[in-house]
Write a protein that binds this DNA or RNA. Structure first.
Ligand code: MG
Length: 283
DNA sequence: AGCCAGGCGTCCT
DNA sequence: AGGACGCATGGC
């Protein structure tokens, strides 16, 4: 990227690379010494230099909001419970932030995510963007935004299967139709309290408790939402229920809501990142 | 060459 | 309420 096309903003307590590779967004790609991607319909280059971000000129405000640079990260991390597993994860993931993503693209991405590895979710995201997204020019690059629900609703199930969605294609299409018609008003749902927002999301095809919690956390800024996937379930059973034979999903849900507290979603993200990147199984 | 993955919907006890 | 099963795909 050419320096004259960039501007600077402060980003204390932030690790861009860790945040973009922590399983909450799936389309950013390394480019030079930074990353390129889109935030809504805005194409963006972003690079971290210490406590500053270099971003595409005109996009500083968008970036500050998307990367949630206003979250009081030190205060959030100090609110985590004091135990060995949590402390190790907190130290390992320093600078990891929960993003503020656009609702629809976050919802769609996580509908595709079920029983898929992060690498493959990235492939599906790219295929969908290149097929139906809006192309945007950034210097010599062409970046594609995530297509609107209206645009996705016009696709066929087979076209989505061609993007390697498998059995998820039908669900994504059905949910796109509900959002496109206005029957599901994702933006209006911002006003709902957590429990009602979760209920509305779970009514959508392909959305259950886990996906709903991801969307609440990564798009609706519900920092208490605690997604329990394969990795987190393993961590919870190994570190917090080491002697139990069977631990039901409901028991885990109740425990996490109480034990990890008001920033539980943040705690969950640090545990997830640590499990994936710091253990033999994750590497 | 299997194993596994940021699960969900359905049906059974 | 809790558990079993089918569903697709490709990186490793
Ligand atoms: Mg649902």
């Amino acid at each position: 990227m050419q320096n004259r096309s960039l501007e600077t903003l402060a980003c204390p307590e932030f690790d861009l690379a860790v945040t973009l590779d922590s399983g909450q967004t799936f389309h950013w790609e390394a480019h030079g010494t930074g990353f390129v991607g889109t935030i809504g319909e805005a194409p963006l280059y972003v690079e971290q230099r210490g406590d500053e971000l270099l971003v595409t000129k005109g996009a500083a405000g968008i970036a500050r909001n998307y990367f949630a640079l206003d979250h009081p990260l030190d205060e959030i991390c100090r609110s985590f419970p004091d135990d060995a597993a949590m402390s190790a994860a907190r130290d390992f993931g320093r600078g990891l932030r929960i993003l503020r993503q656009p609702e629809w693209e976050c919802l769609a991405a996580f509908i595709t995510s079920s029983m898929k590895q992060v690498a493959h979710i990235r492939q599906m995201s790219r295929a969908i963007r290149e097929r139906w997204g809006q192309p945007h020019r950034l210097d010599d690059l062409e970046l594609f935004s995530f297509p609107s629900a209206v645009r996705m609703a016009a696709a066929t199930e087979q076209e989505l299967r061609d993007c390697a969605l498998g059995y998820r294609a039908k669900n994504l299409l059905a949910t796109a139709e509900r959002v496109a018609s206005g029957a599901a008003d994702l933006h209006a749902w911002r006003e709902l309290p957590d429990s009602e927002l979760r209920e509305r999301l779970c009514e959508l095809p392909g959305v259950g408790a886990k996906v709903a919690n991801c969307v609440m956390l990564f798009a609706y800024e519900r920092l208490r939402a605690f997604p329990i996937d394969v990795w987190i379930e393993r961590v919870l059973k190994e570190k917090y229920f080491p002697r139990a034979r069977k631990v039901t999903a409901e028991r885990l849900r109740v425990f996490c809501d109480k034990y990890f507290g008001e920033h539980g979603g943040y705690a969950q993200q640090y545990l997830f990142h640590h499990a994936r990147k710091a253990t033999p199984r994750g590497r």
